[in-house]
């Protein structure tokens, strides 16, 4: 997606948000962010980074200990109910909808967002087509697969054309085709209606392909916030070398030993972030010597947002790559 125009107004403004557990641990640690109107903005971080806690404060269902949330000029901290007039929120699960048939779940949500019965029906039909849910329209959500159910939740979030969509991991469990359908739909909403999207993800590919700007979160803190391109420029001299060993790696080889010291190890999979020339040199030596026999596979890749997360000091990365 293209960069947002610099003159756009601010849709979401979070100022010094703090929320702590009872034991004093901060789950939201002094977060200040602005999301521009018509922007697809992402919150990227591993599980437990505090993304959901942050968006629950954003949509007004969780009260921050201090700080303010403003949505399209409305002070949500002072009046949490005011958020419901401007946004649609998709939580990680939507148990309130799960007993309903797909079309009724979407239609009911549309009517609750103020559409007449007729308009809600028409909007439901459009969404069923757009997300290829039409064949499942009469099926209760509980009788769908995880991915199909998630897609129905997405449809319910999109009905009613809210100017601000807050979506917590909307594509979790979706196959590639469905995931692309959701991304296309979000892009279309942004282009045609100027919809602002705040999207929570722990999927690097999603972040890089869909987001205009991304805030990288860890332990409740914003570690960096910029366009994916500019964030990746922070680590542009680095590449990622991934190795898969066929058997136990030959640790007596000095190149292998040096790589081990700089790799994160997951069984026989090693992943190292290295300066490009170092990686090239190491790979040349690995593939020309006796170590090649022990290597099952290798890839050399340009940095991703996962590398940015690690370079910014992120720990416990369980970010998804695809």
């Amino acid at each position: 997606m293209t960069d947002p125009a610099p003159t756009r107004t601010v849709s979401v403004s979070l100022t010094h948000l703090i929320r702590s557990h009872k034991d004093g641990t901060r789950v939201t640690d002094d977060v200040t962010l602005e999301v521009l109107t018509g922007e697809v903005f992402g919150l990227l971080g591993p599980n437990g980074a505090g993304k959901t806690t942050l968006v629950r404060q954003l949509v007004g269902v969780m009260k921050p200990d201090s700080g303010t949330v403003s949505l399209l000029g409305r002070d949500v901290t002072a009046d949490p109910r005011s958020a419901s007039g401007v946004l649609a929120y998709l939580a990680q699960d939507e148990p309130a909808l799960n007993d309903l048939p797909v079309s009724l779940a979407i239609e009911t949500t549309g009517r609750l967002r103020g559409l007449s019965k007729r308009d809600a029906r028409a909007a439901t039909e459009v969404l069923l087509e757009e997300l290829a849910l039409a064949p499942l329209r009469d099926r209760p959500l509980t009788r769908l697969s995880g991915g199909q159910r998630r897609l129905a939740h997405v449809a319910a979030a999109l009905v009613g054309d809210r100017p601000l969509l807050v979506l917590d991991e909307p594509t979790t469990g979706l196959d590639v085709t469905a995931r692309r359908a959701v991304w296309d739909l979000l892009r279309r909403r942004r282009t045609e209606a100027g919809t602002t999207v705040v999207l929570v993800t722990h999927n690097v590919l999603e972040a890089e392909q869909v987001l205009d700007r991304v805030a990288v979160l860890d332990h409740g803190r914003v570690m960096g916030c910029d366009t994916p391109g500019r964030l990746k420029a922070l680590v542009s001299d680095d590449v990622r070398l991934d190795l898969v060993w066929r058997a136990d790696p030959p640790l007596e080889d000095p190149t292998v030993a040096a790589l081990l010291a700089r790799s994160t190890v997951d069984g026989r999979r090693w992943s190292a972030r290295l300066p490009a020339d170092v990686a090239r040199d190491a790979l040349a030596r690995l593939t020309s010597g006796a170590t090649l026999a022990a290597l099952d596979d290798f890839t050399l890749a340009t940095p991703t947002l996962e590398d940015v997360y690690l370079a910014l000091g992120g720990r416990d990365s369980d970010l998804e790559r695809g």
Partner: peptide
């Protein structure tokens, strides 16, 4: 218990 009230809380009802 399931957090389903969030759904209604973020709708204008």
């Amino acid at each position: 218990g399931s957090g389903a009230l969030d759904h209604y809380a973020t709708l204008p009802v």
